[in-house]
Amino acid sequence: MSDAPQPATLERSTSSRRSYTIGELAKVFEVTPRTIRFYEQEGLLTPERRGRNRVYHEKDRVRLKLTLRGKRLGFSLAEIREVIQLYDRAPDGDERQLQRLLDILAEKRLAMQQQLEDIRVLQQELDDVETRCRESLQVLKAARGKR
């Protein structure tokens, strides 16, 4: 048997030390470097500094991925930060993070249900106005035809 690392082990140890430039992360996630710098200013990413260069590690890549996913789901930056910080701080971070995430998801679901209801009401109002406009238009055309 050889003492050489197996491919999966080698890949895991390499990926944990992998670093990224801001340009590489921007390209991978299809965002601008400005977006990444903004998330850094907001405390969601914490790249290492080497002179004037930012060096992002796997932790930053994962945080960026979670941040972008959270934004797509309608999470505020404060909510995203809270979930990430829960995970970073607590020894039971996974459990607390998941529970908070479930709470936020429930809040989002309720808000979306309210928005759906508001949209249904608005659609009905639009339908009613459209119907009245069409009826009024027919009356005007009929009156014009009698002249």
Rank of each mutant, 00 (worst) to 15 (best):
Y39I: 01
Q41R: 12
G43Y: 08
G43D: 06
G43E: 09
G43Q: 07
L44T: 04
L45T: 03
E48I: 10
R49H: 10
R49C: 05
R50A: 09
G51I: 07
R52M: 08
R54T: 05
R54M: 04
V55I: 14
Y56T: 05
Y56A: 03
E58K: 08
E58S: 05
K59R: 12
K59V: 06
R61Q: 10
R61Y: 10
L64S: 03
L66G: 00
L66N: 05
G70Q: 02
G70K: 02
G70E: 02
A78E: 15
E79V: 05
E79W: 05
E79G: 07
I80R: 02
I80K: 03
R81A: 11
R81D: 12
V83T: 09
V83K: 04
I84T: 03
Q85D: 15
L86M: 11
Y87T: 01
D88W: 04
D88T: 04
R89V: 11
R89S: 08
A90Q: 11
P91D: 08
P91M: 05
E95M: 10
E95C: 03
L98N: 11
L98Q: 14
L101D: 03
I104R: 06
L105F: 11
A106T: 14
K108A: 08
R109Y: 09
L110P: 00
Q114R: 14
Q115T: 13
L116S: 12
D118C: 13
R120H: 15
V121W: 13
L122N: 14
Q123Y: 12
